[in-house]
């Protein structure tokens, strides 16, 4: 059953980040970027929608995608703090996307080898998509780092801003360790994904004439146990408001 709980965390990461990225539409620096960020949001939403019903199968509750997305409480969401943080400036979004997409490339590469057929399918499809997300983030981080003085300053500040949220992605919590031991969801624990992700991010940062931040004084914890940061409650209020206002309705 660890597998179901583990997959729920992955689905929640995808959903909550899709929700944040969706906020960019009509607010992006240029129209192409409205489309691009919307596209990434759609891909992530697709991952979540494929995983949720499978979690419902595995945990025996038979819950569907909207049961998971619309009718759970904050304490039941298992996403990392990184994805729930409020939308900042464009540099912050690109710093977050750089880490998250680099992580997802490794994650889905790992899931592509899962024995669970649904998980394998999600991984094989998503790995192609998230490579584009990574490419997009890398291009922007380099443009902004190696652009104007202002963009350099903002991009550096953004890397510093995102740093405390990075470690949580790679925590080998008991659930993910047990899930990997069960063997149906791939063979790589979160911690084992880190070196490859770190390498990609460092390469991009250096190409962007930026520097990796010093180890942050604090780091986020608890997302996988349903302990979230302040913005999460507001995010869920917005996400769930209509669905919860009409109990039992079909949309």
């Amino acid at each position: 059953m660890a597998s179901a709980t583990y997959l729920l965390g992955l689905a929640d990461d995808a959903l909550i980040y899709a929700q944040r990225l969706g906020e960019w539409m009509t607010n992006a620096p240029q129209i192409e970027e409205d489309m691009a960020l919307g596209n990434i949001a759609l891909d992530l939403l697709g991952q979540a929608r494929a995983l949720y019903p499978h979690v419902g199968e595995l945990d025996g509750t038979g819950r569907g995608e909207d049961d998971f997305a619309m009718l759970r409480y904050e304490r039941e969401f298992r996403n990392v703090h990184l994805v729930e943080q409020e939308r900042g400036d464009f540099a912050q979004e690109m710093a977050r996307l750089l880490w998250f997409s680099a992580y997802q490339v490794e994650l889905h590469r790992s899931l592509s080898g899962a024995t669970d057929e649904v998980v394998r399918g999600v991984g094989q499809k998503a790995v192609k998509e998230v490579r584009y997300h990574l490419d997009h983030a890398q291009q922007w981080v380099v443009r902004l780092g190696d652009g104007t003085d202002e963009s350099h300053r903002r991009m550096q500040a953004a890397l510093d801003w995102v740093a405390p949220y990075v470690d949580e992605l790679f925590d080998d919590d008991p659930v993910s360790v047990a899930a990997v031991r069960e063997g149906s969801v791939g063979v790589h624990s979160p911690a084992s994904l880190r070196p490859a992700v770190q390498h990609v991010v460092e390469l991009t940062v250096s190409q962007a004439t930026l520097t990796m931040p010093d180890p942050p004084a604090w780091r986020s914890r608890g997302g996988r146990d349903g302990i979230h940061s302040r913005p999460m409650g507001y995010l869920l209020a917005e996400l769930q408001h209509i669905a919860r206002s009409h109990p039992g309705a079909t949309w």
Binding site: M25, L45, G46, A48, R49, E65, E238, H241, A249, W251
Partner: peptide, 12 residues
């Protein structure tokens, strides 16, 4: 309405 769509299908 993107952040408030009542189902994931409608959001997509």
């Amino acid at each position: 309405w993107i952040t408030r769509a009542p189902s994931l299908r409608r959001k997509a």
